[in-house]
Write a protein that binds this DNA or RNA. Sequence first.
DNA 1: AAGAAGCCGAAAATATCTTTCAGATGTGAG
DNA 2: CTCACATCTGAAAGATATTTTCGGCTTCTT
Lengths: 298, 298
Amino acid sequence: MGGSQAPAPAALAAKVRTLAPSMTRSMQRVAEAVAGDPAGCAALTVTGLAERTGTSEATVVRTARLLGYPGYRDLRLALAGLAAQQQSGRAPAVTADIAVDDPLADVVAKLAYDEQQTLADTAAGLDMAQLGAAVTALAAARRVEIYGVAASGLVAQDLAQKLLRIGHIAHAHSDPHLAVTNAVTLRSGDVAIAITHSGSTGDIIEPLRVAFEHGATTIAVTGRPDSPVTQYADHILTTSTARESELRPAAMSSRTSQLLVVDCLFVGVAQRTYETAAPALAASYEALAHRHSPRTTR
Amino acid sequence: MGGSQAPAPAALAAKVRTLAPSMTRSMQRVAEAVAGDPAGCAALTVTGLAERTGTSEATVVRTARLLGYPGYRDLRLALAGLAAQQQSGRAPAVTADIAVDDPLADVVAKLAYDEQQTLADTAAGLDMAQLGAAVTALAAARRVEIYGVAASGLVAQDLAQKLLRIGHIAHAHSDPHLAVTNAVTLRSGDVAIAITHSGSTGDIIEPLRVAFEHGATTIAVTGRPDSPVTQYADHILTTSTARESELRPAAMSSRTSQLLVVDCLFVGVAQRTYETAAPALAASYEALAHRHSPRTTR
DNA sequence: AAGAAGCCGAAAATATCTTTCAGATGTGAG
DNA sequence: CTCACATCTGAAAGATATTTTCGGCTTCTT
């Protein structure tokens, strides 16, 4: 990459080395500074770089020309590009656990990276056949009941909210007793969904069992496809399990994973029932509009 | 990594999306051009870019300012950097919208990709200074009240659950009346957090305003850093805004973005209060163990 | 040591960027 | 429907940055 005609972006360091012998003393100083600290030099004006290298503006421009750029302005742009590349190049090693003394920037980077990983894993591990069957059942369901506690309870609510918005009858339950009470009323044509990462949360297994035994179609969203909850599930959707650490409870990645699954269910159902879902979505959007005051700042 | 103070190199596309709504028509044209073709725009002078977008130099400079740069010159440097990164990175860009007739496998892939993108954008756009300040306030808070409705309400609950687990006093409110009632009881040393994507949800602004006026430290988690809610916020945490489509409501990506922010807050607080947080986490884990039956299948 | 060649930087000339200001455009009240 | 207000917009003036010019200076050769 990078010849003498086209001012190469990355090949700059090499070019400096090649051309250094043919440079005069002051030009070498400039070239050296530029090669040594692209980022720093990119922040300087001609005058700034001239001062920094103890030379003059003219010399800086001459150096830029020698390096193959039309002028200093273009050299500076190339320098900025080079700096950005170097910057991004040394980022990938964030696989380490979050430590107590990590600066916030690292925490953000690691969390974001981990959750991205979780998403990729979940998408890769999802069984399309199971997902398709679950969507079919949901699309045709008379009524949908969703069970989940703690973090999974929020995912359950999220799904319920979404299904409600496209005109389906859906409820989330996090009270174990009420959940069982509710499950008793289900029958064939209804759908029950259990969301539990461990798959062995008694409070969630119980209502799903009851729903299953009353003839409802049952779906389990769990990270453990071999766990007790799956005994009573017609369809099993597997969420991914990322390693956890003290400062990064499993709840985080399991939640991300569960939400993706739930989103997939939602979009799938919305597609299958598009005729009714689209207007319902539009209507609910419209209905909420007046709750938002017009922008004031600006 | 960059926030609103230090104009990040990579976060630019995300920033354009975040700020676009608060821009005037002609500024949007400039922002669009810049986000769409960084490499091409980096090669242009102010006048060139003005011509290309059919606007004036003044507008170009104004846009650069709004994006967080001191002037066009610096925006141009950032553009060059971005172009270089894209060059080496080779973004695959599966940005197609979800269609009604997409097979499920595509739905899963697109959703996962979009959410990954949202995470990256959010992380890149987070202002570390604001985040740090928010964490400091939270770590020292006597009590934390979190306001959010609908999808944001779930995020609010998620944060409350997490803070509770590490021994902080935290509550989430989604009932507007109760939220205001609650906000009245806050005073200096307490923290109030408002979570709203639009930043203009009256039901959420109100309690934050009350909390603010009663001397509590207030934090806004919003996708619109120029929205009304920020008037009453001591610290503003910006979530990213992904384009939405009919089958992919904005709620999805804003939720992902909000959750990442909330996770960062949580981990940050856990770090700062490690002495008490660690045992509390362990204890809550222990307390729930008996709720899980031993694995049966397999 | 004298002369020639070419390097170097101050300052002028040019290009680029920024600011100002007045006209254009849209918006809400009456 | 019209007016008054606020905001947006671009032309041109003003400020910076870059490029060029040009003469002094060093260095090498003979």
